[in-house]
């Protein structure tokens, strides 16, 4: 459920179209996808806040959570719990 919504967010924000559906937890994000810039980070965090009804503070955010789909999923799952 959370994974599907997160993939939808990534697909929407990054404009991945069909590549969005092909994302797996091992898929690399920052440093792998050329679309993954600072603006994308902000848009993804915004979408996570709006769609899951949570607030993310910037001291929780570091480069590590954006390494892969799996690391971002772990972060979101933790937030929503």
């Amino acid at each position: 459920m959370i994974e599907a919504q997160l993939k939808a967010i990534l697909g929407d924000v990054l404009g991945l179209k069909d590549r969005g559906a092909a994302l797996t937890p091992d898929s690399g994000l920052m440093g792998t996808l050329p679309e993954f810039d600072s603006m994308a980070v902000v848009s993804i965090l915004t979408a996570i806040e709006e769609r899951f009804g949570v607030t993310v503070s910037d001291d929780e955010v570091d480069a590590e959570i954006f390494q892969t789909v799996g690391s971002l999923l772990a972060f979101v799952t933790d937030k929503v719990a």
């Binding site: 919504q5 939808a8 967010i9 929407d12 979408a47 709006e50 769609r51 009804g53």
Partner: peptide, 10 residues
């Protein structure tokens, strides 16, 4: 506007 999902919680 987003990929098929329910409206957001807010």
């Amino acid at each position: 506007f987003m990929s098929g999902a329910d409206p957001t919680l807010p």
